[in-house]
Amino acid sequence: MELLKLYLDHAVLGILGLMSFVMLALVIERYIYFIRVKLENFQHIELLKVTLTRNLTTISSVGSNAPYIGLLGTVLGILVTFYEMGQGGKIDVNSIMVGLAMALKATAAGLVVAIPAMLFYNGLLRKVDVLVGRWTALQDGVKA
């Protein structure tokens, strides 16, 4: 239990930090790709869609799973707080509140990672739709 107490914050925030870094790297990669993509090089719409949506699943997964990582950190933090209460034999309201407040920061961190990830994901999906529409217009001989 002492090991959990010592490394819980570092582990949860480290995992969330890694998820955030990966998500941002993939978002930047996608935006750069969307700027440089040559729609006329694609002969089939499905090949275009596969290429345009590459890495979007990972971005979405970060957005949907970061709150769960944060929640896990909160639950484990509360578990540690209750364990310490049970071992001490006395109930100190101040230490309980500090322990619970520290546990809740993991949930907040999970939300801080998840919200931008979902915003980026939705923005990238919109960009995919726009590019597919432009490709379709090119195939029909319509100039933008």
Score class of each variant (00 low, 15 high):
residue 25 A to P: 00
residue 71 L to C: 12
residue 96 I to C: 05
residue 127 K to T: 06
residue 40 E to Y: 00
residue 78 I to R: 02
residue 8 L to M: 09
residue 118 M to G: 01
residue 23 M to S: 11
residue 20 S to A: 14
residue 4 L to W: 15
residue 110 G to F: 02
residue 14 G to D: 12
residue 117 A to P: 09
residue 60 S to W: 00
residue 83 Y to E: 11
residue 119 L to P: 00
residue 62 V to S: 08
residue 125 L to R: 15
residue 108 A to I: 07
residue 31 Y to A: 05
residue 118 M to N: 08
residue 102 M to Q: 14
residue 42 F to P: 13
residue 119 L to Y: 07
residue 92 D to P: 08
residue 35 I to F: 13
residue 22 V to P: 07
residue 63 G to N: 07
residue 18 L to A: 15
residue 122 N to H: 10
residue 97 M to P: 10
residue 92 D to N: 12
residue 140 D to H: 01
residue 46 E to Y: 00
residue 88 G to L: 00
residue 117 A to Q: 11
residue 81 T to W: 01
residue 97 M to A: 13
residue 30 R to Q: 10
residue 22 V to D: 11
residue 115 I to S: 01
residue 62 V to R: 05
residue 138 L to M: 10
residue 60 S to N: 11
residue 13 L to N: 05
residue 62 V to D: 07
residue 110 G to S: 02
residue 19 M to W: 01
residue 143 K to C: 09
residue 115 I to F: 02
residue 117 A to R: 14
residue 142 V to P: 12
residue 65 N to H: 10
residue 122 N to I: 05
residue 28 I to H: 06
residue 34 F to P: 09
residue 51 T to C: 12
residue 132 V to K: 03
residue 135 W to Q: 04
residue 124 L to T: 08
residue 53 T to Y: 05
residue 58 T to H: 10
residue 117 A to F: 08
residue 54 R to Y: 04
residue 18 L to Y: 14
residue 88 G to Q: 00
residue 112 V to L: 14
residue 77 G to Y: 02
residue 89 G to H: 00
residue 74 T to Y: 01
residue 143 K to P: 06
residue 62 V to Q: 07
residue 65 N to M: 11
residue 98 V to L: 09
residue 32 I to M: 08
residue 96 I to A: 09
residue 105 K to C: 03
residue 31 Y to H: 07
residue 139 Q to L: 02
residue 83 Y to R: 09
residue 103 A to L: 04
residue 143 K to M: 12
residue 122 N to W: 05
residue 69 I to S: 04
residue 64 S to F: 00
residue 44 H to C: 09
residue 25 A to F: 06
residue 13 L to V: 08
residue 82 F to Y: 04
residue 28 I to S: 13
residue 33 Y to R: 14
residue 111 L to K: 07
residue 116 P to I: 03
residue 125 L to N: 15
residue 1 M to Y: 02
residue 58 T to A: 13
residue 83 Y to M: 08
residue 28 I to D: 11
residue 68 Y to L: 01
residue 59 I to Y: 00
residue 70 G to M: 02
residue 72 L to H: 08
residue 21 F to Q: 06
residue 36 R to C: 03
residue 99 G to F: 07
residue 76 L to Q: 08
residue 123 G to D: 01
residue 57 T to A: 15
residue 15 I to A: 03
residue 127 K to Y: 04
residue 87 Q to H: 10
residue 34 F to Q: 04
residue 47 L to R: 10
residue 133 G to S: 15
residue 142 V to F: 14
residue 113 V to I: 15
residue 87 Q to K: 12
residue 53 T to H: 07
residue 123 G to M: 03
residue 134 R to T: 12
residue 30 R to I: 10
